Simulated scan of single mutants.
Amino acid sequence: MIDPSLDIDAVRAFVRIAEFGSFTLAADSVHTTQSAVSLKLKRLEKRLGVRLVERTPRHVQLSAHGVAFLEHARGLLEAHDRALTVCGNARQRLALGISDHVAGPELPALIARMNAQDAQLLIDIRIATSGDLLQRFDRRELDAAIVRLDTGRDDGELVTEEPLAWFAASGWQHRAGEPLPLATMAEPCGVRALAEQTLDAAGVPWKEVFVGGGVAAVAAAVMAGLGVAALAPRMLPFGAENVGRRLGLPELPRLPVLLHTRIRAGRPRNALDALAAAFRSVVRG
Rank of each mutant, 00 (worst) to 15 (best):
A221Q: 01
P237Q: 12
A79V: 07
T32I: 02
A119K: 06
M223Y: 09
V243Q: 06
D100Y: 02
G104V: 06
P237T: 08
R254S: 13
D28N: 12
L149T: 05
E157H: 12
L133W: 07
G213Y: 00
R267H: 07
H101V: 10
P250F: 12
R16N: 13
G156V: 06
N89F: 09
V283K: 02
A79C: 03
A229H: 03
A229T: 06
H101G: 13
V209M: 01
A176T: 15
L121W: 06
I111V: 15
E187G: 02
I263D: 09
R175S: 14
A176I: 13
Q120A: 15
A186Y: 02
L77R: 04
G171W: 10
G131P: 00
Q120R: 11
S99F: 02
S38Y: 13
A195K: 00
R267P: 11
M223N: 10
L76T: 14
A109F: 08
E106A: 13
T198A: 14
R284S: 13
E19I: 01
V283A: 08
V222W: 01
G203C: 08
D155Q: 12
C189W: 00
H101P: 00
L122E: 14
D132C: 04
M1N: 12
P233I: 10
V257L: 15
W206T: 00
L122A: 12
D143M: 05
L258I: 06
M1V: 11
V60C: 05
V283R: 05
A79T: 11
G214W: 01
A10G: 15
G213I: 01
V283Q: 05
Q197N: 14
P57C: 10
A240E: 08
R139F: 03
T151K: 11
P250G: 10
R58P: 00
R284P: 00
A103E: 08
T184F: 05
W166H: 02
R262N: 08
G66Q: 09
P181W: 00
C87Q: 14
D124P: 01
Q197T: 10
R269P: 02
L199W: 03
L180M: 06
V37L: 07
R47C: 03
L41H: 03
A27S: 08
A202K: 00
V204C: 09
R262T: 09
L48H: 01
I111P: 01
R284F: 05
Q34D: 14
A18R: 06
G88N: 09
L84N: 10
A274Y: 02
L122H: 12
L255K: 09
F14Q: 04
L25Y: 11
H80D: 15
R246E: 12
A265P: 00
R262G: 10
F210Y: 15
V67S: 13
E78I: 08
R58Q: 13
A271V: 15
G214A: 09
E157D: 13
L199M: 02
Q61T: 10
V102K: 03
I98L: 15
L252C: 09
N115Y: 04
L107I: 07
E45F: 08
G88L: 07
A112L: 11
M114I: 08
A144E: 03
P163A: 10
P250V: 08
S38V: 03
V159G: 12
I17N: 05
L247W: 13
G66L: 04
A68F: 12
S63C: 11
A73C: 07
A229L: 07
E251L: 11
R12W: 10
G225L: 06
S130Y: 01
P4K: 10
P237V: 09
